[in-house]
């Protein structure tokens, strides 16, 4: 019963935070300069090495697997198009989002959570500064902008690594790989993936901020909030992925 009540308590708090964040867009001018760039810098350059590594190996593994499953059934010339579609629609945005959820979502929850338990958020309130506008808005905006950028990097790396794997593991030369890719390329594949990435960016930052604000009971509380931020945003990403895929590609 307690867990049931807590679920609805967090749902209510999350909804209020969401509403206050949307309302704080009225003061967007105040965050457009320094705070937004600072957050974008932290999110992009902090996550890009991880995203590159993950995309590199995802491209390699997926290509080897396509070679294994498709041999004898699918012409290997189509490896490029199959992989590109998979990367643009699904792997790029979802993998990047899950990595960022682990890194940025946890970071936001820990930072805001520490500010909560050390009365820094109370201090902002006392100065007449809206903490949602000051802390959440720049992070949410940065998330919405940076996630698609990271996704483009991930897609580029995955396609390049896949083309290399295609040549060495299944004997498809690069020009055939990219010819197949171009032949069946539909712009919606790319745009749909980037729209997904933006929504995931919003989810990660707002969920991280929520758990930060909900932090209580000192260092233990900060630890719990960090874990909760990663788990909750990962679940929301998977859920939103399904909804968005149905909306965009059905």
């Amino acid at each position: 019963m307690n867990a049931f009540l807590r679920f609805f308590e967090h749902l209510g708090m999350g909804t209020i935070l969401l509403w206050r964040t949307l309302k704080s867009f009225r003061e967007i001018g105040k965050v457009l300069k320094h705070p937004l760039w600072e957050q974008m810098d932290i999110m992009f350059f902090g996550s890009v090495p991880l995203v590159i590594l993950t995309a590199l190996f995802s491209g390699l593994v997926t290509t080897v697997q396509i070679g294994y499953y498709g041999r004898g059934y699918v012409p290997m010339d189509y490896v490029g198009v199959a992989l590109a579609k998979m990367v643009m629609i699904e792997l790029g945005p979802v993998l990047s989002a899950l990595i960022v959820a682990g890194r940025i979502g946890a970071g936001i929850a820990a930072e805001i959570g520490t500010m909560r338990v050390t009365e820094q958020i109370d201090s902002l309130e006392c100065m007449g500064i809206d903490p949602v506008r000051f802390l959440v808005l720049p992070r949410v905006l940065a998330g919405v902008i940076v996630l698609p950028l990271l996704t483009i990097v991930a897609e580029f790396i995955a396609i390049v690594s896949s083309s290399i794997a295609a040549k060495f593991y299944i004997g498809v030369p690069a020009y055939i790989y990219f010819h197949g890719l171009r032949l069946f390329f539909v712009p919606l594949d790319l745009w749909g993936g980037l729209i997904k990435a933006s929504v995931f960016g919003f989810i990660i930052t707002i969920v991280g901020s929520h758990w930060g604000f909900a932090t209580e009971k000192g260092a233990t509380g900060v630890g719990k909030s960090t874990t909760n931020a990663v788990v909750t945003s990962s679940l929301f990403i998977i859920f939103a992925d399904y909804i968005l895929t149905v909306m965009i590609y059905r």
Partner: peptide, 23 residues
């Protein structure tokens, strides 16, 4: 409303026990 409360708070300085400086 909260907006009016923020205006009133600008007349009040608060020194927290743990200082609450932004790290």
């Amino acid at each position: 409303p909260e907006s009016k409360l923020y205006k009133i708070r600008k007349n009040i300085g608060f020194v927290f026990q743990g200082s609450a400086l932004f790290d």
